[in-house]
Simulated scan of single mutants.
Amino acid sequence: MTDLEKRAHDIAVRILPQMIEENQISYYVSNDGRHEFFNAADIVDEYQMVYEDILNELQNPK
């Protein structure tokens, strides 16, 4: 991992909770009455989008 990739990851992880809230992504996809099922796919997609945007900005500052 390059320094820019590490920096992009750190920033993405830091702002991910805010992005999840702003985009109204549920932490859980379902509840069978006994277990809540974690919504990993949508959260990972959100992280990836944020990470790639930040990395792009770090690599190509305006």
Results as ranks from 00 to 15, higher is better:
L58H: 05
A40F: 13
L58D: 03
M19W: 06
E22K: 13
L55D: 08
E21A: 11
A8D: 04
Q59C: 12
E21S: 10
R7N: 04
E52L: 14
Q24I: 10
I15Q: 01
M49I: 14
N56S: 15
L16D: 05
N23R: 11
P17M: 00
V29N: 04
M19E: 05
D32R: 00
P61I: 09
N23M: 06
N39F: 13
E22C: 09
Q24S: 11
T2A: 02
F38C: 00
K6I: 12
V50N: 09
K62D: 15
V13F: 09
Q24Y: 06
L58K: 04
I25Y: 09
E46R: 12
E5H: 03
D32T: 06
N31W: 09
Y47S: 03
Y27S: 02
Y47D: 03
E57R: 15
E52K: 15
I20W: 05
Q18I: 07
D32N: 13
R14D: 06
P17V: 06
A41C: 03
R14S: 08
Q59Y: 09
D45H: 13
M49Y: 14
D10K: 03
A40R: 12
Q48W: 14
E57A: 13
N56I: 13
I11N: 01
I20H: 01
V29D: 00
Q24A: 10
I54Y: 11
R14V: 02
P61E: 06
Q59N: 13
D32L: 11
E36N: 08
I11Q: 03
L4A: 02
L58W: 12
N31F: 11
D45G: 11
Y51I: 01
Y47R: 08
L55V: 13
V50G: 04
N56M: 15
D53M: 12
L16K: 05
N56R: 15
N60S: 14
S30M: 04
D53F: 13
S26Q: 08
E22I: 13
L55E: 05
I11G: 00
Q59K: 15
V13I: 10
M49R: 14
L58R: 04
E5V: 01
M19D: 00
A41E: 11
I54W: 13
A8S: 07
I54L: 10
S26L: 08
N31V: 04
V29I: 11
K62M: 15
N23Q: 10
D3Q: 09
T2R: 07
D3P: 02
L4I: 06
I15Y: 08
Y47W: 14
M1S: 05
Y27L: 07
N31H: 12
E36F: 12
Y51S: 02
Y27T: 04
I20G: 01
D32F: 01
A12Y: 12
V29S: 01
I43R: 05
S26R: 09
V44S: 07
E46W: 07
A12N: 02
L4N: 05
Q18Y: 05
L16T: 04
A40Q: 12
G33C: 01
E46D: 03
M49S: 12
E46A: 10
I25S: 03
I43Q: 07
V29Y: 07
D10I: 02
Q59H: 06
E22H: 10
D32P: 01
R14A: 06
K6T: 11
I54C: 09
N56D: 15
D3F: 10
